[in-house]
Structures are given as C-alpha cells and as structure tokens.
Amino acid sequence: MLMFVTFALVQLNDPDPEIWVPVYLAAAVLCFLAFKRKLFRWVYALAFVVFGIGAFLLWPPVYQGITMDMDHTPAIEQARESLGLLICALAMAYCFLLEWKYRA
C-alpha cells in the first residue's frame, strides 16, 4: 500500500497526473482493504484483469528500456507506465491469494 502511495506522489510531476495518481491510489486502497479483509476475491480478480489489460495495451511496439530520459522517445514513457500497471496487477493477484487463504 505504501509503495503505491509513493508511486502516486511521484506521479504529481508527470505530464498526466490526472490519470496516474488515481490509478496508483486505487491500487493502494485495494491493498489496504485486502489488509483489512473487507472485499471479496472477485474485486481483486477484476482489478488484476483491468490492470493487466492496461499494461498490455500500453506496452510500446518497440521496447527501448526504461532508464533513458523521457525526451529520448515516447516508448520509454509507455514502457514505464506499462510496468507500473503490471506491478499493480501483480499486487492484485497477491491480494486475491490473501483473500483466498483467509476465506478458505
């Protein structure tokens, strides 16, 4: 949860914070609710699918890394955004497994 709040804060300097801050805050809230065991597994499964589809759709046609400056090519920013969504998807899979364990 704290990692996603940090991700959201870092996005405040991004050219499109109105997209990425809510995305990362949503992941943080879902992680917090998993910690409190307040949601059902299907919510995390749905979030996993949505984040996963977003990561797939944002993946650049040609991967050029993530370490170069964003001014070099838009593909670098796309790769970073895609990997961020992939991290969100993996966290949702973990939350799903936690709910599975607690409700079994």
Rank of each mutant, 00 (worst) to 15 (best):
D16W: 12
D16C: 09
D16G: 03
P17D: 10
P17V: 06
P17R: 10
E18K: 06
E18Y: 04
E18L: 08
E18C: 02
E18H: 09
E18G: 03
I19N: 04
W20Q: 06
W20A: 05
P22Q: 05
V23H: 08
V23K: 09
Y24E: 07
Y24K: 04
Y24R: 03
L25R: 09
L25Q: 10
L25D: 04
L25E: 08
A26H: 09
A26G: 14
A26R: 11
A27I: 02
A27Q: 08
A27Y: 02
A27F: 01
A27M: 09
A28Q: 08
A28C: 09
A28L: 07
V29S: 15
V29A: 15
V29G: 13
V29K: 12
L30T: 01
L30E: 00
L30S: 02
C31Q: 15
C31K: 13
C31P: 01
F32I: 12
F32Q: 13
F32M: 14
L33K: 15
L33E: 15
A34S: 15
A34K: 06
A34D: 12
F35I: 11
F35S: 14
F35P: 02
K36M: 14
K36I: 08
K36G: 05
K36N: 12
K36C: 14
R37F: 03
R37S: 08
R37C: 07
R37L: 06
R37H: 10
K38H: 10
K38F: 13
K38N: 11
K38D: 06
L39E: 10
L39K: 09
F40M: 08
F40W: 05
F40I: 07
F40C: 04
F40R: 11
R41S: 14
R41T: 13
R41A: 14
W42G: 00
W42H: 07
W42V: 01
W42A: 01
V43W: 11
V43S: 11
V43G: 02
V43K: 02
V43Y: 07
Y44Q: 06
Y44C: 02
Y44P: 02
Y44W: 14
Y44T: 03
A45Q: 13
A45P: 03
L46E: 07
L46Q: 05
L46K: 06
L46N: 06
A47D: 04
A47E: 05
A47N: 08
A47T: 02
F48N: 01
V49C: 03
V49Y: 00
V49F: 06
V50Y: 01
F51L: 00
F51K: 00
F51D: 01
F51T: 01
G52Y: 01
G52D: 00
G52I: 00
G52R: 00
G52V: 00
I53S: 04
I53Q: 02
G54K: 01
G54L: 09
G54V: 00
A55E: 05
A55C: 14
F56D: 04
F56Q: 07
F56T: 12
F56N: 05
F56E: 04
F56C: 10
L57M: 15
L57Q: 13
L57I: 09
W59I: 06
W59D: 10
W59H: 15
W59N: 15
W59T: 13
W59E: 13
P60S: 06
P60N: 03
P60E: 06
P61G: 13
V62Q: 07
V62P: 00
Y63E: 02
Q64F: 04
Q64N: 10
Q64G: 11
G65L: 08
G65R: 07
G65Y: 08
G65T: 10
